[in-house]
């Protein structure tokens, strides 16, 4: 195991940020931590990278305890913080050189490792980091985090604020890094990125809801899922949410994904209900759930649990 996290608790001024978090990451694995803003992802990563102390619980990294061996661990971990941690008044090359020197290495020595990422921004190496686009900043930050050949790469929301094309490219780069034997722990608020990881953990309000392979999470989905569309999408969501037999209704692009409390004759009932509400061109299909549906369902369950408990 590369990383073992055991019963981690952390609160800030009475506010519970992490509640009894336990999971582990295998060596060479690409592990995704998925959750909305404020779920506790950054706090957890800061504990793993020795930047914060947990209130309770242990974290063990390559057999080293993060509390006692923080100095050794700081050599082994490459950390890309949520805000990219770049010096905006330094150029691309100066940033990279600085981080290389700080970690006691040079760009040339580890060029191999970062080549794949860095070659895309190298043409702009005399440009100030503050003048780069989001996608380029992200690549530079990744190069900086990689420059000392870390065994574990911890990436805090690397794809937030980055365009869709850059996001896809970034995940391709991560896959290639993984092949070089680097264990990668990545957090993201985008659920669609979950299927790109070997395993994912879903975190919400400081609670870890589920840790599994993406395909297993989908396999565990038990409800019948309907995709509903009509000529007035906004009204459609509200009407469906107000219907008494609706379990959940979420907007997914141009349609609403609907689950029902009662599975009998659901399609007919929904069509009738929507016609009464004045909707036109109604389409309903039974669809296979995606990973996002599963997360929505898990989070919905957790919310209900929290409300009733």
């Amino acid at each position: 195991m590369a990383l073992n996290i055991n019963n981690i608790h952390k609160s800030f001024e009475g506010l519970q940020a992490l509640n009894n978090i336990t999971f582990s990451v295998k060596e060479g694995e690409l592990f995704g931590l998925i959750g909305p803003d404020g779920a506790g992802k950054t706090t957890l990563f800061r504990i793993i990278t020795t930047l914060l102390l947990p209130d309770r619980g242990e974290v063990d990294l390559f057999g080293l305890d993060v509390l006692k061996n923080y100095k050794k661990i700081r050599q082994l971990v490459g950390y890309m913080a949520g805000r990219f941690s770049l010096y905006h008044d330094l150029t691309v090359e100066e940033n990279l050189k600085f981080y290389a020197t700080v970690f006691g290495t040079t760009i040339e020595k580890n060029y191999d490792l970062i080549k794949d990422v860095y070659c895309q921004i190298e043409p702009f190496k005399t440009r100030k980091a503050g003048k780069l686009s989001g996608g380029m900043k992200q690549k530079l930050a990744l190069s900086c985090a990689l420059i000392h050949k870390p065994r574990l790469l911890v990436l805090d929301e690397p794809t937030t604020g980055v365009d869709a094309v850059s996001r896809t490219e970034f995940w391709d780069m991560l896959k290639r890094l993984q092949k070089k034997g680097i264990t990668i722990l990545v957090s993201t608020p985008y659920m669609d990125e979950a299927s790109l990881c070997n395993r994912v953990g879903l975190i919400q309000k400081g609670n870890l809801l589920s840790v599994n392979k993406p395909e297993n999470i989908i396999a565990e989905y038990q409800r019948e899922l309907l995709s509903v569309s009509s000529d007035n999408l906004y009204k459609l969501v509200n009407d469906l949410r107000n219907e008494k037999d609706t379990h959940s209704a979420f907007l997914f692009g141009q349609s609403v994904h609907l689950t029902r409390k009662d599975r009998k004759e659901s399609v007919k009932q929904v069509i009738k209900y929507l016609r009464d509400k004045g909707h036109g061109s109604i389409h309903i299909n039974v669809i296979k759930p995606g990973i996002e549906d599963c997360f929505m369902d898990l989070m919905h369950k957790e919310d209900e649990f929290l409300l009733s408990g």
Partner: peptide, 13 residues
């Protein structure tokens, strides 16, 4: 403020 201290602290400096 810029968050670079985070990275410096994680470094072996």
């Amino acid at each position: 403020e810029l968050g670079t201290m985070e990275t410096l602290l994680v470094s072996p400096l």
